[in-house]
């Protein structure tokens, strides 16, 4: 039995497996996020089951208790128990994409109780402050990250934000996008949320919290459909757009957008 510990956004997860291939995948994939110390969460990953597909799409639904969720996709099946802080996962093959997808879902559920969200966004740290660049595929998340050579990358694809006492912190994640680089395992105070789109010039426009909320929610990674957990995610997002200034950011592919952000 191998036990590895991954720490993301202040939540440390012990990954336990008998499968040496799975252990290798976890060790390689989460290299910058391996940690030591007592785990908050525990995931047992079972050996591959022989390639039987579980479900065509991602399905996350309550299963056998208010805090227990079944999580299924074509390449994995598992359960997440939020109150016990345990999960189990069976894979069709020891694939890093499968493990990574399950971890994203696990963190999206686990973070709710700590008032955190997984957001489709690039995040970067500049001068000690974090900036979040939200948007769907093709909006420019990876481009913004690539153009920001003097910033620290937290993620170019999926960022984690946690809110407490009216201020927000943004955390580095190993959930990488087209840049194929994991973020750094660090956190910084979040000082701006930018809803990205390509344009002919750099332009920043302030958004009110209602519009910002409407633009943030579709970018929040969350699969469960139960009303109480959806409402909890809504409240975290609503608090976030009240606590952090939000903007529409139109940009063209050069680093000049930072100047516009600084002057906004």
């Amino acid at each position: 039995m191998v036990e590895l510990s991954i720490g993301i956004a202040g939540l440390r997860t012990a990954v336990i497996t008998r499968d040496p291939d799975v252990a290798t995948v976890v060790r390689d994939r989460y290299e910058g996020f391996l940690s030591t110390g007592p785990a908050d969460w525990r995931i047992e990953i079972s050996p591959p089951s022989g390639g039987v597909p579980f479900s065509k799409d991602v399905v996350v639904r309550r299963d056998g208790g208010p805090a227990r969720f079944s999580v299924r996709r074509h390449d994995f099946a598992g359960t997440v128990d939020v109150s016990e802080r345990t999960a189990d996962l069976t894979l069709t093959s020891p694939d890093d994409v499968s493990i990574n997808s399950f971890l994203r879902i696990l963190y999206s559920l686990a973070l709710v109780e700590t008032r955190g969200l997984v957001v489709h966004a690039a995040s970067l740290v500049r001068d000690g402050a974090a900036y979040l660049f939200c948007g769907p595929s093709g909006s420019g998340k990876t481009t913004v990250a690539r153009l920001s050579t003097d910033a620290t990358l937290l993620s170019d694809e999926l960022s984690i934000v946690r809110i407490a006492e009216g201020y927000a912190m943004c955390f580095g994640t190993p959930f990488r996008g087209e840049l194929a680089l994991a973020g750094e395992d660090r956190a910084a105070p979040l000082i701006g949320i930018y809803f990205l789109h390509h344009g002919g010039r750099h332009a920043v426009e302030a958004l009110g919290p209602k519009e910002a909320l409407a633009r943030l929610l579709p970018n929040v990674l969350f699969f469960a459909r139960e009303a109480d957990v959806t409402a909890a995610v809504f409240r975290i997002a609503a608090d976030l757009v009240e606590a952090v200034p939000c903007f529409d950011l139109s940009f063209r592919p050069d680093p000049g957008f930072w100047e516009v952000i600084r002057n906004a």
């Binding site: 919290p209 209602k210 959806t230």
Partner: peptide
């Protein structure tokens, strides 16, 4: 779930 901003509500249908 809902929240009012500047006298206007945003209401989420779960």
């Amino acid at each position: 779930a809902w929240r009012v901003y500047d006298g206007e509500a945003a209401v989420l249908c779960p």
